[in-house]
Amino acid sequence: MSRGTGFAGPQAGGPLGGQGVTRSARPWGPYMREFHHARLRRAPLSPCRQALRLRGGLMRYPPLTPVYCALFLLMGAGMSANFASKAYRASETLDWETGSAQILSSGVKPASDRQDDCYEPIATYSYKVQGRHFTGQNVRASDSCLSRSESEQFQAAFKKGDTVAVYYDPGYPSEAVLEPGKLSFNDWIQGIAGLVITVSALLMGIEVLRKR
């Protein structure tokens, strides 16, 4: 027998049936694993692990998950529908008649009820259609939320006293815009965000229904 902590050879009549115990066997291993598992059982679950707990090898979602999916689906669909409506109205102005208008006043104002980087364009202009005088205030087909750079470009393009192109509806000449077919950068962000939220909520809802 060697003087080390293990045995150099087999021991007759031992519990291992003649097989020697080496240092790599580590008989305390099962106890360490049990201690580690006990710590894991006592450790608090993170919010993500609480939302998606493993049970029987399958994901178990909280009971209100379908409600959350439905709410996000409605929110995303509403954002996408709003963007689609703005895009449709903007596309219609591309077919309107063109005339000349004089800028009476113009500027931008911060939108107090929206995010900080949001400015509403303001303009008043006069134009004539078939001898009739009209005054317009629409810059685009729908309300726009301009970024800081877009607001600076707008103020540089439409100054008081300038003569600019105006686009009016031939059937209703009182309806006119200065920038046809345009959507602001924030409108595009809203449209993309609505699409992402809608698709994500739809896929999550399908996954939840599959595992119920």
Rank of each mutant, 00 (worst) to 15 (best):
R3E: 12
G6Q: 10
G6I: 08
A12K: 13
G14M: 10
G14C: 12
G14Y: 08
G14P: 01
P15H: 12
P15Q: 11
P15Y: 11
G17M: 09
G18Y: 05
Q19F: 10
V21L: 12
W28P: 04
G29H: 09
G29M: 10
P30M: 06
P30R: 10
E34Q: 09
H36K: 10
H36P: 01
H36L: 06
H36G: 07
H36M: 07
R39G: 04
L40F: 06
R42N: 04
A43M: 06
A43L: 04
P44Q: 07
L45V: 12
S46L: 11
P47D: 04
P47T: 01
R49M: 11
A51T: 00
R53E: 12
G57K: 04
L58D: 04
L58E: 06
M59D: 11
L64K: 13
T65H: 15
T65L: 12
P66V: 14
V67L: 14
V67S: 12
Y68N: 12
A70S: 14
A70G: 15
L71C: 13
L71V: 13
F72Y: 05
F72P: 01
L74G: 07
L74M: 09
S80P: 00
A81Q: 12
F83K: 00
A84N: 06
A84H: 05
A84R: 03
S85W: 15
K86G: 08
A87Q: 08
Y88P: 01
E92I: 10
E92T: 11
G99C: 01
I103H: 04
L104I: 11
S105I: 02
G107E: 00
K109D: 09
A111P: 00
R114N: 10
Q115F: 08
T124Q: 05
K128H: 14
K128A: 11
V129G: 04
Q130P: 01
Q130M: 07
G131P: 03
R132C: 06
F134M: 02
T135S: 13
N138D: 14
N138R: 02
V139M: 02
C145L: 01
C145T: 02
L146T: 06
S147T: 15
S149D: 15
S151I: 13
S151Y: 03
A157N: 13
A157V: 03
K159A: 13
K160S: 12
K160A: 14
G161N: 09
G161Q: 07
G161L: 07
D162G: 03
D162M: 06
D162Q: 10
T163M: 05
T163V: 13
V164G: 02
V164W: 07
Y168R: 03
D169A: 13
G171Y: 09
P173K: 08
P173Y: 12
V177E: 04
L178P: 02
K182G: 03
K182L: 06
F185T: 15
F185C: 03
I189D: 05
Q190C: 05
I192W: 06
I192R: 10
I192F: 09
A193W: 01
G194W: 00
I197R: 00
T198W: 09
T198G: 04
S200M: 15
M204R: 12
M204L: 15
I206M: 02
E207T: 15
V208T: 12
V208S: 00
K211F: 00
